[in-house]
Design a protein around this nucleic acid. Structure first.
Lengths: 382, 382
DNA sequence: ATTAAAATGATTGACGTCAATCATTTCTGT
DNA sequence: ACAGAAATGATTGACGTCAATCATTTTAAT
């Protein structure tokens, strides 16, 4: 017995000194320790080590400590491949996206489709489920229709309503993890929010419009889809905050509500572009919501004032073209691809009850005509 | 025999119709098919199916076809967890980063350290190796010092020199995959480049500086680290292109070379900020390279002209603070975190000889004071 | 000292794939 | 028809973990 303990100590000293400089100058050809190694190093049986790491109980305090110590010393990390294989873990995920022809969500759907087959190799299945757009009742119905126990994780384009709490709690109790996507749910309903900070997006729009006037006075028109929508009102809030604080020489007109409708956006733009007797000339427009095709339509038909600056949201084919045509100057995007990837990573981590790899906030991305990604996707050259 | 074939056909019809709508309305609770299922469906033995998918040869054309057909029909995807477990695959990676106190690479190193332990669970080990900065001889020496066969994949901050071709070819022949990071290698030396388009970055800087003048005339000073560096000269090229084409009312001064040295940058900035008799007042500065702390130092000491716009590169603590202080107006960043993740994903895919999940180009990111990520990292609220 | 409870050890069969061996069958060409 | 080559089948032991069973030892309570 004594000799075994001695070996354990020697091993642990050896191992801990090896671990000292993990990322520099030490070649990475060390054998990765297994749970058997840990057990041996801790001086306990495999069964006990297993009881410890899987928290099966019925193990003495000092054994727990010995095993934990051994794990530290050896730098043991559970082999997730083996673990998932053994417990036949599959990740059954669902994305609940608003239905309809919305270009942004179309793009998102497309990206999900693109990654589905690659995820299959990691035992991840993804269903994309269409939900009535921006409709609390529809969302609740959909949540209820998801039979309990069918999904391990769900990403939902959220709505701010207390009514969704009950069905979501039910899902959660049935073992599903929930993250909100693009638009947040009530905080207690989800484990994480994957989306941009929309107040920051609005502030950014204001900053760029402010800067674009080069200190000269101007008149700014904002178009919003709906002030009921959390993201829209957040953006407006951030926008107003920065514009009034930092650019007092700019006049902010009352926002026009468009219900994200192309024609309404077009009409509003026409009004803004048409010089009227008693109305000042608009020098900048910020379209908070969707309906960019109407916006572009109006910009194509009517002549812009000499100095005119236009900011819109979401990089989609329409807005992309408008950037290149100089009809729109800036597009603020939330990078749906990255959001989808984040949601997937998060859900997997939640399901495994693992802790997360470090990752930064998703930031509202500023596109001008000059830093557009090529529309083609990456491929390997070799 | 006939009956077996019949069953195969029936199965395949059933399966292919199930596959028709992969992402809508079909619950994801299907059992994932294994290679045994494929073999059964193809009417061959497991051994033959194995010979096919692992290309071991000695298998008849028609068996190959049957197996492929069965794979299609069942939607078979190799279980990478099981495969990697079985073949004891480990990914031994190395990142070759320039040594020194550079804030950008410090950040990158930090991020790598952060993900290392999470990668360990997937049998990925990463060594960070320091290389003499921007020194072809040093890089070559380092490449040679990496003993053959030690690494499966390498990410290198590249240099444009034909001299690196030989050691890299040697590494490649020894079985290592190579990607270039941040700065490209000669194309034939690497399988992919992970970094931003620096011409686009320069164009973006020009666009924002152009916009910031609101149509008014101005004088623009560019600071470059070294025109030898590919990224710097690319940025300058893009900058000049857009500024001269789209903003003819702006005067572009001769670029000042700073060797990325803080003091040199500071001196150049002082010159720019000091109003001289026969020199025009500078209205905008674009710092193409590093040395932002010198830039900020000068901006703190000297009074800026009323209308002054400053664009710099890389979001690091210094530049972040300067954004918030309004000393710098825009920071163009290459998102080192994302670059690292991409490099890791790419290397793993290359090593597995898998095809890539779809991913978009990495785009030069525009930061203003309003869309900065919180410096803290994401955590789960759950 | 006895007994029950708690802790530990030892072992086993999955999980899906890989990589190998060996026996058997089916094709070639003559 | 026959030898030799080519193709196929059948089987096996890893890989590291999980989840279980059963036997044995140690500990605590009386």
């Amino acid at each position: 017995m004594t000799s075994i303990i001695l070996i354990g100590i020697l091993l642990s000293m050896n191992e801990s000194s090896r671990k000292a400089a993990p990322s520099v100058s030490m070649p990475a050809n060390q054998k990765v320790p297994t749970l058997s190694d840990v057990a041996r190093c801790a001086g306990v049986s495999y069964a006990t080590a297993d009881r410890v790491i899987n928290e099966r109980g019925n193990v003495a305090e000092k054994s727990v400590r010995k095993v934990h110590q051994a794990m530290m010393n050896l730098g043991y990390v559970r082999n997730v491949a083996a673990a998932n294989l053994s417990r036949q873990r599959t990740y059954r995920l669902a994305f609940l996206l608003p239905q309809g022809q919305n270009a942004f969500f179309n793009h998102m759907r497309q990206h999900i489709d693109g990654v589905i087959e690659h995820l299959l190799a990691e035992q991840v299945t993804v269903d994309v489920i269409e939900v009535a757009a921006f409709d609390v009742a529809g969302l609740i119905q959909c949540l209820n229709s998801i039979a309990e126990k069918t999904y391990d994780g769900i990403a939902v384009v959220g709505l701010q309503s207390d009514l969704v709490e009950e069905p979501l709690t039910r899902l959660k109790n049935s073992g599903a993890s929930v993250v909100s996507l693009v638009s947040d749910l009530p905080k207690q309903c989800r484990s994480a929010y994957v989306g941009i900070n929309n107040v920051a997006a609005g502030r950014t729009a204001a900053r760029l419009i402010g800067v674009s006037h080069g200190g000269l006075p101007g008149v700014v028109q904002v178009l919003v889809g709906s002030l009921q929508a959390q993201d829209h009102s957040d953006r407006l809030k951030g926008f107003q905050e920065v514009l009034t604080r930092d650019y007092p020489q700019l006049t902010l007109l009352e926002p026009v509500t468009t219900r994200d409708d192309d024609e309404a956006v077009q009409a509003a733009m026409q009004r803004a572009l048409t010089e009227l007797q008693d109305e000042p000339e608009v020098s900048a427009v910020y379209n908070v919501g969707a309906g960019n095709s109407g916006l572009v339509e109006a910009l194509t038909q009517y002549e812009k004032p000499q100095r005119f600056f236009c900011v819109a949201h979401e990089l989609v084919p329409h807005s992309r073209e408008a950037l290149l045509n100089q009809h729109i100057d800036v597009v603020i995007d939330q990078c749906p691809d990255i959001e989808v990837n984040r949601a997937l990573t998060l859900l997997k981590a939640l399901i495994d009850a693992r802790d997360l790899p470090p990752m930064l906030e998703i930031v509202p991305t500023v596109y001008v005509q000059d830093n557009l990604p090529s529309s083609a996707q990456l491929t390997l050259s070799n």
